[in-house]
Design a protein around this nucleic acid. Sequence first.
DNA 1: TGTACATCAGTGAACGCGCGTTCACTGATGTAC
DNA 2: TGTACATCAGTGAACGCGCGTTCACTGATGTAC
Lengths: 197, 197
Amino acid sequence: VARYGKKHKDVTRQRIIEAAGRRLKRDGIDGAGVATLMADAGLTNGAFYAHFESKDDLVATAVAAQLREQCDHLRAQVANRAGLEQMVREYLSPEHRDDVAGGCTSAALLDEIARSAEATQRRYTDSVLAIADHLATLLAPQDPDGGRAQALALFALLIGTLQLSRALTDASLSDAVLAQGIENALALLRRRRTARR
Amino acid sequence: VARYGKKHKDVTRQRIIEAAGRRLKRDGIDGAGVATLMADAGLTNGAFYAHFESKDDLVATAVAAQLREQCDHLRAQVANRAGLEQMVREYLSPEHRDDVAGGCTSAALLDEIARSAEATQRRYTDSVLAIADHLATLLAPQDPDGGRAQALALFALLIGTLQLSRALTDASLSDAVLAQGIENALALLRRRRTARR
DNA sequence: TGTACATCAGTGAACGCGCGTTCACTGATGTAC
DNA sequence: TGTACATCAGTGAACGCGCGTTCACTGATGTAC
């Protein structure tokens, strides 16, 4: 004698998580309230605790979901060196800079994640490692640990550059930082390749 | 018929700004309340508005003060290439990673600054440019604009790497990211030097 | 030199507000008959 | 096939709390006499 289709609640939960991904990136973790997060999903605040244990729980879940999506996107785009260079150019594009809500979660929230509950940090670490390990096979096929560190360091460059470009109020300066970031990222990738041969 | 020494209030104001620098970096901008900020300076919340127009005003002032201090420190340390390399190694050290309150303001707050009031962002931009311009003369003496972008892109790498190392829960992985970040930063500096000659 | 006083940096209670969280209730829906 | 019902996803008001901000007041201090 069950009620509502079995998947109904799961669908709603996914809708909340998806909307929260955008809202958290836009307003920050502290800046996004539970009532707003639920309104974004077309619900009221009261239903929240039927889906999540706490706001921290949703934050950790939403961050992990965002990174999983980013990982899938990366797997599809980056199959070789050309794809990797393409990714760097898109990541450090003015379009990505101007689309905080739809963009990279790390760039929008990394320093807030570093201040978050340890459970959130652990899920973030796991998720970011999944991304790094995919790139590691491209960067250093014979050295998984080294490739992992190289991939993470490349991410760090991309994240820091995008964040800085977003904080600068001078538009042409912001553009110049993005351009220099692309040049630096590609230089590091080339260096890697040369060193291997 | 004035009262209290002329400098008394200025001294107190500087004490609030100094303490706020540490507290904001530790707890985040949204995470640090006015009452806490004042308690850190040995005062109560009521006195706050005799010193600042608003919390935003203090935040913008404290961020600018922190960066001015960082700029002074940089001017003293980085007079040549050796000083620059030394700075990179110290910036990406485990000690800096573990000292958020005493460390780099950009690494602690950059994505929150990017979401802050425009006045805060403008003061941040001005302050960070003062730092970049000092490095620019070292990186590319004959090309101020290019040197500025290079300096900012180097900062971005340092900031992103420190932030990522702080968010990862795996200690040895965090260390590896710092080490790889140093290697990448130094490689870019060497490349720069070689290209010029 | 000693005292009365004007100044104003700082106090601490109070303001309205939005936060995260709880809970008694509603009402649309799939099932049983 | 049509109706009565049990289920439970979702509602919306309320909870205590801490936020940023305001304000009437206090009391230590430099000055005037």
